[in-house]
Nucleic acid binder design. Structure first.
Length: 892
RNA sequence: GGGCGGUUAGCUCAGCGGCAGAGCAUCGGUCUUACACACCGGGGGCCACAGGUUCAAAUCCUGUACCGCCCACCA
């Protein structure tokens, strides 16, 4: 009797639920740091604990998992280390939003309460994320899971900070920073996004002191004029030479401010006179230093005007702008208002308009770290895939600025510094100091925390146990590949390279694979406000994890964005069903006592009984060989789309459409039995088993479910060997013969279909094949041709007998015996079309081979190829012409 | 302003010097005892435009036009 029957339609939900716990409990995901096998290690780009995973994560996790499963099956000791990131400012934003609904701010709660809330949030969000990862089927080593604010990782962060500080690479100072008035913290240059904005350019009159007249000053941010401490002109601008050294009156504030000459001024722009506000503009700040100007802060940390703003103190910056402009107009100081489009900096997290502001912050000197980080990419120790992303990397690295690493936030790693207010001493220490080491005075702890990316930069080694010298660190560092998006090359990739080289004296990874961004079907970025977000888990619920994974993989062209389409999704869920049913069919026809088939058994069969094996067996083994090799090659180059397409085409259009169809009669015919049938089944089981293994990294659940039902040795498909090419299986001749056979069958089918011949009708057929070997080969496989092309008899003839419907294929001709009415008009049309196509091709190829240049310069193989093709086409054309001429002129 | 990438079938995209491809959609025919989430067959392309290199160009070079991204950010 048959073995277990599977249900007719594949049901992912039921299958997926059971295998993840099975794999996890048996420890298949766990890396062995004592293994002697070659190792393969990836650390996950830790998702932010800001809620749930989006399609970008699903993509990355899928690609990671395909690589890891493939490597694991290919004999590697694999570690894929999972974890999450505390995402300081992002979590602040989420919690701020929640507090806002209760009409509160974090300052109402206080630091301690806020942190409790954050940890609570981390627990929930982190849990959601890890659950989502499980649903996708990722084979991460949960025993090594990390979080950036773990005890161990925090120690690494502190250690790095202190070492850098002691080396003088971390310093503290008062400079202009990008300040977000909503988040109430400094942010780095990278966290400012510039948005083209329709604004105004206000031209304001600054009267001259000591003489008649005025200068006209243009600004997009009039409220900052309250902090102006000079106006500047270009040193070589003849129009204003006489004014330099003089003074002008600052309207509203009625302050006398100097006219300075400075080359920051562009003579061509506007009037050539610029207001200078050292406390609120980076360029003005520099100019202020050069000219020793006062720095007057008129906007505070929440975007409110300070008492330095006089009458406007306490007013919001934008309200102030509005009122100030009205007053300037009323008082006759507003000369002109123009519409003006310019870029305005916004906070990457909360989109508030960023305010340049003077403030005391901690900085990391990056120049000495950047140099070796540039070198390792230049000399290829780290490769970018695709390669051109390294240009983007270099561009940024060559112009890198010191990194503002302190944040006035609470959720994150606190900077290990203390201040003595008595003597001004700063103490940076691994343990909490009790008193000032210099004067014995009381200490005040730093309240700032570190930029989130500071801890992320250490991820590849902090997760493996650094600063301790652990076995994991020795075995798994440097990691092999980093897979990530283009958006965090600067934020993360660059900084990991710098920190890895600095503290591990080696690169953190050897290859950086940059994947695209997942967009919606019309290429728009997915965003909550746009409402076009696709939730990965909803897709998994609807189509199954395997189909989601396969879709993402099939669209993952390195470095290219992915317009995610549900149509593709449906197609691949149909593929899963196809695989399911192919397996179902095979299993239905297996005897319960059927024993497992190993690759060695098949190799032995080939070695001993090759000449007794049918063509399709030799062919499928040959193809399996090629496909497994091609897929490994594609994965090696991160060409996930090629790999997916190869396995899809192979399983559907070779294994199912041809091979299983050909084995079908053997399986279902009651007369087939004995040794021959046994051999056929051996190859069939092996082909299915191999296809499942190749597919496993892409569709782990489906393949495990099926594999468990196929006769097998071993516990799980995920720890079986990935099929490696084997020399015994190579058989190009069989592959060609099979191809010829398929061509003939397709030609016959095509003739029938185009003439609307009842598919059930078994037609008699006569074939004409001049080549002896081919004729013999077709004769041997005649039964298959009959079966697949629905033919009654296949006779061999020297010429196609009259009265038959004639057809042409590459190696000969055939005739179909059609009783009843033939639609000669339809046939004439068909032949005419084909003839024209053939003539067109002949023309093209003639142009080539008639050219002396071509014959003389093209490689011989190419010339040969074209000549052979020409001959073939001519023959075909002649046959077609003959057939056309022999058609009766009108229907009979 | 500087840089990078794209423009190929109705749609979404592969291909990146030697016969123009896939998936979906479409049209015709089939419920053939694995699968109608299927099977069989068909149609559909001046590979953005203009030059150039080459025996040979979708593929390499130059320019143009659109589209997208990154960096800079002079009021």
């Amino acid at each position: 009797m048959s073995r277990e029957l599977l249900q007719k339609v594949y049901d992912p939900a039921q299958v997926e639920a059971k295998w993840y716990p099975f794999w996890e409990q048996r420890g298949y995901f766990t890396a062995d740091n004592t293994s002697t096998k070659p190792r393969f290690c990836i650390v996950i780009p830790p998702p932010n604990v800001t809620g749930s995973l989006h399609m970008g994560h699903a993509l990355q996790h899928t690609l990671h998992d395909i690589l890891v499963r493939w490597k694991r099956m290919s004999g590697y000791n694999t570690l894929w280390l999972p974890g999450t990131d505390h995402a300081s400012i992002a979590v602040h934003y989420v919690l701020d939003k929640q507090l806002e609904q209760q009409k509160k701010t974090r300052f109402d709660l206080g630091r301690e309460e806020f942190l409790k809330l954050a940890w609570q949030w981390k627990k929930t969000s982190g849990g959601t994320i890890l659950n989502q990862m499980r649903r996708l089927g990722v084979s991460v080593d949960w025993t090594r899971e990390r979080f950036t604010m773990d005890e161990g990782l925090s120690r690494a962060v502190q250690e790095v900070f202190i070492r850098l500080y002691e080396e003088g690479l971390i310093y503290r100072g008062e400079y202009i920073v990008n300040w977000c008035p909503r988040c109430k913290t400094a942010i780095s240059d990278l966290e400012v996004v510039y948005v083209p904005t329709h604004g105004k350019l206000w031209h304001i009159k600054y009267p001259l002191i000591g003489s008649e007249g005025h200068v006209s000053v243009a600004t997009t941010r009039p409220e900052t004029m309250l902090g102006d401490t000079a106006v500047a002109v270009h040193p070589e601008d003849p129009r204003y030479q006489s004014l330099v050294g003089g003074k002008v009156l600052l309207p509203v504030m009625n302050r006398e401010i100097p006219v300075i000459a400075d080359s920051i001024v562009d003579r061509e722009f506007g009037t050539g006179v610029v207001k200078v506000t050292p406390a609120h503009d980076a360029h003005d700040y520099e100019a202020g230093l050069r000219h020793n100007l006062r720095k007057i802060t008129v906007i505070d940390e929440s975007g409110t005007m300070t008492k330095e703003a006089g009458a406007y103190a306490g007013m919001d910056r934008f309200a102030c702008r509005h009122e100030l402009v009205e007053r300037l107009a009323a008082d006759g100081f507003l000369l002109k208002v123009e519409d003006y489009e310019h870029n305005v900096g916004h906070c990457d997290r909360c989109s508030a308009v960023v305010e340049p502001k003077i403030s005391m912050q901690w900085y990391l000197k990056v120049e000495s770290l950047a140099k070796p980080a540039i070198e390792v990419v230049e000399n290829g120790k780290i490769q970018f895939v695709p390669d051109n992303f390294k240009k983007r990397y270099f561009e940024w690295m060559y112009n890198i600025h010191d990194w503002c690493i302190s944040r006035q936030l609470w959720w994150g790693h606190r900077i290990p510094a203390w201040y003595c207010d008595a003597c001004g001493q700063i103490i940076v220490s691994r343990t909490t100091p009790q008193a000032c080491s210099k004067c014995g005075g009381a200490l005040r702890a730093e309240t700032d925390i570190l930029d989130t990316w500071f801890s992320s930069a250490l991820w590849p080694f902090s997760t493996l146990g650094w600063p301790d010298d652990t076995q994991d660190l020795r075995v798994f560092y440097p990691t092999d590949v980093l897979i990530t998006g283009p958006d965090i090359i600067f934020f993360w990739v660059a900084r990991m390279i710098m920190m890895g080289l600095k503290f591990m004296k080696d690169v953190p990874f050897r290859q950086v694979h940059i994947n695209g961004i997942v967009r919606d079907a019309s290429r728009k970025k997915m965003s909550k406000t746009r409402g076009n977000v696709i939730e990965p888990l909803e897709l998994v619920d609807q189509y199954g994890a395997d189909a989601v994974r396969f879709t993402l993989s099939s669209m993952a062209v390195p470095g290219t964005d992915i317009p995610f389409s549900t149509d593709r999704m449906k197609g691949y869920s149909a593929f899963a069903n196809k695989v399911w049913n192919a397996a179902r069919f095979v299993l239905m026809n297996l005897d319960e006592t059927q024993s497992p088939v190993s690759a060695a058994t098949v190799d032995e069969l080939l070695a001993k009984k090759r000449d007794q094996m049918p063509l399709e067996d030799l062919w499928i083994l040959h193809r399996l060989n090629q496909v497994s090799g091609e897929i490994s090659e594609a994965l090696d180059k991160f060409r996930f789309h090629d790999a997916s397409s190869l396995i899809y085409q192979f399983i559907w259009h070779e294994l199912c459409d041809w091979y299983i169809e050909l084995v079908k009669p053997v399986l279902t015919s009651p007369s087939a039995k004995g040794e021959e049938k046994e051999r056929r089944i051996t190859v069939l089981i092996h082909a299915l088993d191999s296809a499942l293994r190749i597919l496993h990294p892409f569709m782990p659940y489906l393949t495990e479910e099926i594999w468990q039902k196929v006769p097998h040795n071993g516990e799980s498909i995920m720890i079986q060997e990935f099929p490696q090419p084997r020399r015994v299986r190579e058989d190009a001749a069989a592959a060609q013969d099979m191809q010829d056979l398929m061509d003939l069958i397709v030609s016959v089918r095509s003739s029938r279909a185009e003439l609307n011949i009842d598919p059930k009708k078994m037609l008699d057929c006569a074939v004409v094949i001049p080549d002896l070997r081919t004729r013999e080969h077709v004769r041997q496989n005649a039964e298959k041709i009959k079966y697949l092309a629905r033919l009654g008899r296949v006779d061999f003839a020297d010429a196609v007998p009259g009265g038959m419907l004639k057809g042409v294929w590459r190696l000969g001709e055939f005739g179909l015996a059609i009783q009843g009415v033939i639609d000669y008009e339809a046939e004439r049309d068909r032949l005419q079309r084909e003839l024209e196509r053939t003539r067109g091709e002949i023309e093209k190829i003639l142009k080539k081979i008639n050219s002396h240049e071509f014959i003389a310069r093209a490689p011989e193989s190419v010339v040969e190829e074209n000549r052979a093709r020409h001959t073939e086409l001519i023959e075909r054309m002649q046959k077609l012409e003959t057939n056309l001429n022999q058609l009766p002129s009108a229907a009979e």
